[in-house]
């Protein structure tokens, strides 16, 4: 592989790995405080799966970039992470040792984000099965088996909240509106995707997955009687809100600063040490 292709593929793998890692981190925060004890166990499993997937992608990237998975996951500077910004926001309350805890947890936002991200990731991994980079196509095959369970979990909550009257439905609708620009930001290209497509390493660009995703989301909105935040116009889609982009270029919001500080806190104490 030519150096520029290796570097573009490494960069692309970091984008996927970061998506999975950051969503996994944020969802793992529900462990111990989910709405039902049963869901503590289920949601935590999903979060652990995502972090496991992130690790697989980091290992692939580490091979190309001559480093190791932990260093990639926890040792980069904050503006060298490329996840979509929608994944970095906290959906749980935050514990404060003084007792002045921060509230604002929202289960509807957590399950809607996970489900709609999973629909995106399903399309992305389906495309990656056709990558000519065999280690990636192989890893994705394994990952997709677990993701099927995630989609079932997601659709169950989607339907349950949509079919409940009152607060549950109001919150789900609110979550959909609030998340929409950020979800559209998932389709921001990583630098070098064009090169990867022309080299046959990717069947198409991330942006090309958007219409298929909108189609699927609209289907789930219609089935649950939820207002769909975009419109179909003839052959295309009319998107009223601008997507929230920048994540794929390493530009993030304040929620990321807080999460980054937390996730690197112990490691930064002794960066060279074995933990």
């Amino acid at each position: 592989m030519r150096a520029e292709v290796t570097s573009a593929l490494g960069r692309y793998l970091l984008t996927i790995a970061d998506d999975e890692l950051i969503l996994g981190y944020r969802d793992s925060e529900w462990t111990g405080i989910a709405p039902l004890v049963e869901e503590d166990v289920a949601f935590s499993s999903l979060a652990q799966d995502e972090i496991g997937h992130a690790r697989l992608y980091y290992m692939l990237a580490a091979d190309l970039l001559a480093t190791d998975a932990d260093e990639l996951a926890l040792g980069r500077e904050p503006d060298d992470y490329y996840h979509a910004t929608v994944l970095e926001t906290r959906t749980t309350p935050k514990y404060d040792a003084s007792g002045a805890h921060r509230g604002g947890g929202d289960w509807a936002r957590a399950v809607a984000r996970r489900f709609l991200y999973d629909l995106f990731d399903d399309l992305r991994t389906e495309a990656l099965l056709r990558s000519s980079y065999a280690p990636l196509a192989g890893a994705v095959q394994k990952i997709r088996r677990e993701e099927q369970y995630h989609l079932r979990h997601g659709v169950a909550w989607w339907r349950a909240l949509a079919s409940a009257d009152g607060e549950a439905r109001v919150r789900l609708e609110g979550a959909l509106v609030a998340l929409w620009p950020g979800l559209l930001g998932l389709f921001e290209d990583a630098p070098g995707e064009d090169l990867l497509v022309s080299e046959g390493l990717l069947p198409h660009r991330t942006a090309d997955l958007r219409d298929a995703w909108l189609e699927r989301v609209q289907g789930h909105c219609d089935a649950a009687g939820l207002p769909f935040p975009s419109e179909r116009t003839g052959a295309g889609w009319s998107i009223a809100v601008p997507p929230e982009v920048g994540g794929r270029q390493g530009r993030h919001g304040p929620a990321w600063t807080e999460l980054y500080d937390d996730m690197t806190m112990v490691r930064r104490l002794e960066p060279e040490a074995v933990w």
Binding site: Y25, T31, I33, S44, Q48, I51, Y58, A73, L74, M265
Partner: peptide, 29 residues
Amino acid sequence: ALPERDWILRAPTLQRKLAVTAKIQDEVG
């Protein structure tokens, strides 16, 4: 689960992160 939960985000390696999360998940189970 609460005293350990704060360290889910702070675990210093991916392996530790997975193990701490799984452990707390067990306790809730």
